[in-house]
Design a binder for these strands. Structure first.
Lengths: 338, 338
DNA sequence: CTGAAAGCGCTAACAT
DNA sequence: ATGTTAGCGCTTTCAG
């Protein structure tokens, strides 16, 4: 494997000149630059990432950190991951995946202490997420997809839940619905401070307020069983809602399927809107789910960009951005039944 | 940030002793070991990963490489990723995600040239996958989830497709089905040499042979539209199959949903079995899909283990393993209609 | 505009 | 059982 010194020798320049040609942090005459570049190509030279890192290079590796989940992750979440990875690559960074139980903060601590990563991007952020303190203490650049409640100094990109709630409720209202059920995340998730869970219900309550609508909530696990439980709960509700908002895809799909088994017709008998669910998941369900969701790609891209800004010191400022979700009307929502 | 020398000073030993305490590659007396450990704890010391890498440490980072996909990835595939990551961590390795178009082999080349990763794990392997040659040339340890046709020297773990085909076909045969439709991957995928696609159809043909069964194939894209196309194709087939085998989840779900829209009852009118689809996806569909699939977790774990063996030189041998898939009967398969 | 040289923090071969 | 030391291949400061 060729090293920088090999290139320097072949090009007839000093090793540092090679470095400067690569980094561009010094003016190099076109002639020497050309010679160096040619030598690099001839030797198929690629800088050794460990040496760069040890010597204090700026770019390098980003860590993408998400807590392990008992319910597993969906294709929607995978979209966030791949989008973040792609964007990191565009900026010349690698992306390291890291996952451990939320409470096991030591894992994150040791990762950061290794100095391997130039910055950390957090996913699945809870409103009082212990990971932020770890990163603050470590003085490493970090950003998050989603946000904690205490976020004055946090660079984040998040879904605009308030807007999502408004869009969904207004859509239902305009279709004549007055009685809504909301499939919430499980009680454990709520207690754990699941950000989307908490912000979404807040937003929906607000949107419903002063609107002469009735909102009833049912918390369930995000899996098929939870969806069936939601269906059973639905049947008990009085007055019976004519529309259902669901936050998580496995639970919402389970609900829709249970309704279908019971020969309820969606959206004729009942409208369903899924919040925060990606297109692919929405289309795995019959009828295809009307969704209100931000582009996961968009969020991930923005978050990675913000993190890179922070790392490269192009700004001291805290960057915060809310992405406006978009409603895609598919087949699961329609006018209120008479 | 404390360095190894700080620890050595505090413990009153030489720097190398600290290294040896950590690596365990040399016998250290219990007394000194205790002193060193105490000093490490006091200073909250963690080795600098770049320095370790540069100095030629064995462990480090594994790369998980998968080609970018137009159809996106499902939760099933995400399971493979997270399982691989977890296992890597257990062995003391980090996991770097890397993805680019299959044809862009240079990306992989440059990753490997950076010497950052100790080994590469390939996902979504095609039967004539160009990535293997790159890795062979680079002389870097590699293993794959899935296998190419030319695999004499390749360490891999793969689904036992032959067994999967047999299980699925026998199950249908035992239920009285004699006419089967197979939803294949798209023609482009087949031409690109999609491994599961090619091996599965081979296996099914073999299982059907000499069994007085009729097999008809339909290739579609792996998305909801593809699924609907499969349904339309199904209606044209004569004799009309009584059972459908589907390889990919978005297409198979789309097919089932289209059938449902047309008021066909599954499994009363038609049985469906999904191959290689994970539990979570199977349960997003109504009726929940009967699946024949290996455990993604199992495959990923085995593949990472094999790669680590290779890296740490505990074996020169090529390790190859086929994982036997398991059938889970859910609600989409049943006796042939009269 | 370019070169020389001092580290970065570790691993492991070479001493004792 | 432990200490000493020569690199690993870079980035960047200090000197021209």
């Amino acid at each position: 494997m060729a090293t920088r010194d090999d290139v320097a020798r072949l090009a007839g320049v000093s090793p540092s000149t090679v470095s400067y040609v690569i980094s561009g942090r010094r003016k190099i005459s076109d002639a020497t630059k050309a010679r160096v570049l040619a030598a690099m190509r001839e030797l198929r030279y690629t800088p050794n990432a460990f040496a760069q890192g040890l010597a204090g290079a700026r770019r390098g590796i980003l860590a993408l950190h998400f807590p392990t989940s008992v319910d597993g992750y969906s294709s929607t979440e995978f979209e966030y991951v791949t989008a973040a990875m792609e964007r990191a690559r565009m900026f010349g960074y690698h992306m390291l995946l890291w996952s451990n139980p939320m409470t096991d903060v030591m894992g994150l601590e040791s990762l950061v202490a290794q100095k391997l990563v130039a910055g950390v991007l957090l996913m699945e952020v809870s409103i009082s997420d212990p990971r932020f303190d770890v990163l603050r203490r470590a003085k490493i650049p970090f950003a998050s997809i989603g946000r904690p409640d205490d976020n004055a100094d946090v660079t984040y990109v998040d879904n605009d839940f308030a807007e999502a709630g408004r869009i969904a409720v207004e859509h239902l209202a305009s279709l004549g619905h007055r009685s809504i059920m909301y499939i919430n995340v499980s009680v454990e998730e709520q207690e754990a401070g699941n950000g989307p869970g908490i912000r979404t219900i807040r937003a929906i309550r607000e949107a419903v307020e002063g609107r002469d609508m009735l909102l009833q909530e049912v918390p369930v696990e995000n899996n098929a069983r939870g969806g069936r439980a939601a269906w059973e709960a639905y049947l008990e509700l009085r007055p019976r809602p004519t529309a259902v908002l669901g936050l998580k895809e496995f639970a919402t799909a389970g609900f829709v399927n249970a309704a279908g088994m019971a020969s309820w017709q969606i959206p004729k008998d009942l409208s369903v809107i899924a919040l925060g669910v990606g297109d692919r998941s929405a289309e795995m369900v019959a009828p295809a789910l009307t969704t209100v969701a931000p582009s996961g790609e968009h969020i991930s891209h923005a978050a990675v960009e913000a993190l890179v800004q922070l790392i490269e010191g192009r700004t001291q400022q805290v960057l915060q951005e809310l992405i406006t979700p978009v409603m895609i009307e598919r087949e699961s929502s329609g006018p209120v039944p008479e």
